[in-house]
Design a protein around this nucleic acid. Structure first.
Lengths: 220, 220
DNA sequence: TAGATTGTTAATCGATTAACAATC
DNA sequence: TAGATTGTTAATCGATTAACAATC
């Protein structure tokens, strides 16, 4: 069947910028700012105004010529495009500092992510409550994740157990995994894996720092 | 002197991929793998092999035709390009769960980042030791950061104090700030600011999840 | 209406890829 | 030497931007 899979493939870069716009729009809306122009949004996001308009045009006509965009309305539109217009259940594995930080993080709640389960293998932690969530045994991952229909998993465990935990999450039918460990994790193609290494961001920034300092010493 | 400032501006995308290569190279080296081809590196990083070779060509000739790249040697080369070939001091502000997670995170140490100072405003925490680091008073940020020549700052504080802390770090002469709070922080142009919102990564992944599920149900 | 800002086109720019000669 | 893989070219592809007509 040669039917169109999706009216044009939406460029990857556009998808990466949508959450950026959304953040600014929510920020503006909360500040009581009802409308915003692409020029103003450009200042906040450091994305070219023409590109913002072009990105949004991929999905429809959300602005009003001569006026701009309604912050609340556009925020909701973007949320709908992303799928962030309803609650998304998240399971965090690892009740160490990172895991606890994720559970308490207010930025997740803002975007509809609800940490619904927290797992650990430490019997001292299992059964205790952290930020309103009871810590469950990692042995129960399959059961709990499948039962509650949790779709997002966050790996906040030591590198040496990351793969084993990932396997369990996948077996339980999880759809996406955010890996905060330094381990190389392999998952089936049906599961989206996102590795987020804090060091990578520091290294990235370091390059520009090194370059600018190297040039400061040079003649030009 | 009409010397080359830097032979062409190195594309941003190249810089983003260097840490990715570096991670894989260190991984391979630690596994006892002495050489690697661009084809193999492509499997690990999901970057096209031709692009890997092209990216590296921006900085020199690191491979051996018919053989591949020496993992250890190339890792060191990339570290030198980035500036990660020597220790980089980091100050973490906020000794909550996230701050503690950063201090303990082994991925930073791997890349030469050394958390050298940890600040908090809680008098109960000030003076205590976390993972070998004494918690200092946020009031002493300027003094300590300037004195030790710390160049990287990590904001692991609540959103409402993020800007105030950032101002202090900038006043102390910090060169780069990684912002983990949900606050919109403004810094002078001389300081590199990197916002890392965990929600953004989740939202990004959510889009593809939503799309694939929407298509599974739809006729086309 | 006059001013402002979107949606969209057309031009530019840069990144990606395939292919292959160079060479280990 | 034969096989393998780099470094690099040339072609493609896609993203970015400037500009402007449409229109609120």
């Amino acid at each position: 069947m040669p039917s169109v899979q999706q009216d044009q493939v939406t460029p990857h870069g556009v998808i990466e910028r949508l959450p950026l716009y959304l953040n600014s729009l929510i920020h503006l809306r909360n500040e009581g700012c009802g409308t915003v122009s692409s020029a103003r949004l450009s200042e906040l996001t450091e994305v070219n105004p023409a590109q913002i308009r072009r990105d949004l045009a991929h999905f429809g006509h959300f602005g009003l010529r001569g006026v701009g965009y309604d912050t609340g309305k556009l925020a909701r539109e973007i949320q709908q495009i992303i799928g962030a217009d309803r609650e998304q259940l998240v399971a965090v594995v690892g009740a160490g500092h990172l895991g606890c930080a994720m559970v308490q993080y207010d930025g997740l709640r803002t975007h509809g992510f609800v940490v619904d389960a927290l797992f650990d293998n430490d019997s001292d932690k299992i059964g205790t409550t952290i930020a309103g969530i009871v810590v469950s045994d990692v042995a129960d991952i399959e059961e709990i994740v499948a039962q509650r229909g949790i779709r997002f998993g966050v790996l906040a465990v030591p590198a040496d157990v990351a793969q084993a935990v990932a396997d369990r999450l996948c077996a339980a039918g999880i759809r996406a995994i955010i890996n905060y460990s330094t381990a190389f994790v392999v998952v089936p193609e049906t599961v989206a894996l996102h590795n987020t290494d804090p060091a990578r961001e520091l290294l990235h920034t370091l390059y520009y720092l090194t370059k600018s300092e190297g040039m400061a010493g040079a003649k030009r």
